[in-house]
Structure formats: C-alpha cells, structure tokens
C-alpha cells in the first residue's frame, strides 16, 4: 500500500486541496455579500423608520399641541410668572 504513496503525489493533493479551499472561500464570500446586502437594507429601513418616528415625536410634542392638550383635556392654565419656582 505504502508503495503507492509517492512523494510527488503530494503536489496534486495539495493543489486539489487549495483549489477546494479557494472554491469554498469564494462561496463564503458570496454568502457573506448576500448577508451584508440584507443587513444594509435592514439598516436603511430602520434608519428610515427612526427618521419617521423622530418626526412623529417632533410633531406630537410641538408646543402648540401640548398647550392645547393641557388646556382642553387636563384643564390646566398657564402659570403666572409668580407661580413659577426656579431652583
């Protein structure tokens, strides 16, 4: 058996292993690229959503709306300057 194992066989074996490795690597690279694209899209969507939510916060907390809410729903009135305490 051992007579078949000639030292020169090492060369094609190594070449085959390297070729296999190369194929595996390029496949990995391709898979990763797909993953990156997916994550990038997700990131973009999240950014967009956060943008929209920020705007919604700005819109919901605009002073005029809060004033109206405080006055109409909570029966509040603006304090006169003497009712404001500073620390």
């Amino acid at each position: 058996m051992s007579t078949h194992l000639k030292p020169w066989l090492l060369i094609p074996a190594t070449a085959a292993a390297l070729a296999g490795g190369l194929i595996w690597l390029s496949h990995l690279r391709y898979e990763l690229s797909l993953e990156t694209q997916r994550v990038t899209t997700e990131k973009k969507n999240i950014e967009q959503e956060s943008n929209q939510l920020r705007l919604e916060i700005a819109s919901l907390t605009r002073p005029e709306r809060l004033r109206q809410y405080a006055r109409d729903s909570l029966n509040m009135a603006p304090p006169s300057p003497i009712q404001v305490i500073h620390q």
Partner: peptide, 26 residues
C-alpha cells in the same frame, strides 16, 4: 429661568429672600 421679583417684599428682607413666593399649586 428668569424669576419674577416682588418689590413690595423688598426692603425689609435681603435680596435672596425677596424674590419669590411659593404657590401651593406647585
């Protein structure tokens, strides 16, 4: 943050105390 000041409390009290009155509502 600019407090209202009351002159009628003015002279007898020192400057730190004359400035404001606590209102119960707060």
């Amino acid at each position: 943050g600019i407090p209202a000041r009351f002159d009628h409390l003015g002279d007898e009290q020192d400057l730190n105390n004359q400035t404001w009155r606590t209102m119960p509502i707060a």
